[in-house]
Amino acid sequence: MADTQQVDEAAAPADAHGERRAAKLAKQIGSFAAQHGGAEGQVAHLGRKGARIVLVGEDGEWGDLVAPTYDVAVAAVTKAGITVHEDFDGEFAAKVRTGPYEWSRMAGIQLGGRKNPA
C-alpha cells in the first residue's frame, strides 16, 4: 500500500516566487535590525491577505511588513535570524516605544478626539 500525503501548496514557499519574496523580506528585516540595534518579531495571520510581521527594535522603534502567506513570513524571519515571539504581549509588547503621534491617533479613534491631519 502506498503512503499518501495531502500537500497544501499555498502553505510553503516552495516555488521560486515564494522563496524570492521571503529573501526580500529577510533583507528588509535585517536592514531594520541593523538600524535599530537588533530586532525581535511576531508573525500574525491576516487571513487571505497573508501575514503581518511586526518588528520591534532594541531601541523601541517598531514597524511591520506584510507577506503573501504565513509560511513566507516564517521563512523570512527565519532567514533574518531574529527572535520570534508567539504572541505580542508581556515583555515583548513593553519594548515598543510610542510617541505623540500614536497616542493622539489612539485617543482620536477611541475617545472621539481630534483626527490626525492627512
Rank of each mutant, 00 (worst) to 15 (best):
Glu58Ile: 15
Glu58Pro: 14
Asp59Ala: 07
Gly60Phe: 09
Gly60Tyr: 08
Gly60Lys: 09
Glu61Ala: 13
Trp62Ile: 14
Trp62Tyr: 15
Trp62Cys: 15
Gly63Tyr: 09
Gly63Gln: 04
Asp64Ala: 14
Asp64Ile: 14
Asp64Phe: 12
Leu65Arg: 06
Leu65Gln: 04
Val66Asn: 08
Val66Pro: 05
Ala67Pro: 01
Ala67His: 07
Pro68Ala: 03
Pro68Phe: 04
Thr69Cys: 11
Thr69Arg: 03
Thr69Gln: 04
Tyr70Arg: 13
Tyr70Glu: 12
Val72Gly: 03
Val72Met: 09
Val72Ala: 00
Val72Ile: 11
Ala73His: 05
Val74Arg: 13
Ala75Cys: 05
Ala75Phe: 02
Ala75Ile: 01
Ala75Pro: 02
Ala76Lys: 02
Val77Tyr: 01
Val77Thr: 00
Val77Glu: 00
Val77Phe: 01
Val77Gln: 02
Val77Trp: 01
Thr78Trp: 09
Thr78His: 11
Thr78Gln: 13
Thr78Met: 12
Lys79Phe: 12
Lys79Ile: 13
Lys79Ser: 10
Lys79Val: 12
Ala80Pro: 03
Ala80Tyr: 03
Gly81Arg: 00
Ile82Val: 03
Ile82His: 05
Ile82Arg: 03
Thr83Gly: 09
Thr83Glu: 12
Val84Arg: 04
Val84Lys: 04
Val84Glu: 11
His85Trp: 07
His85Met: 02
Glu86Gly: 02
Glu86His: 06
Glu86Lys: 07
Glu86Phe: 06
Asp87Leu: 00
Phe88Met: 04
Asp89Gly: 13
Asp89Met: 10
Gly90Thr: 03
Gly90Ile: 06
Gly90Leu: 14
Gly90Tyr: 03
Glu91Cys: 10
Glu91Met: 14
Glu91Phe: 15
Phe92Leu: 01
Phe92Cys: 04
Phe92Val: 06
Ala93Thr: 07
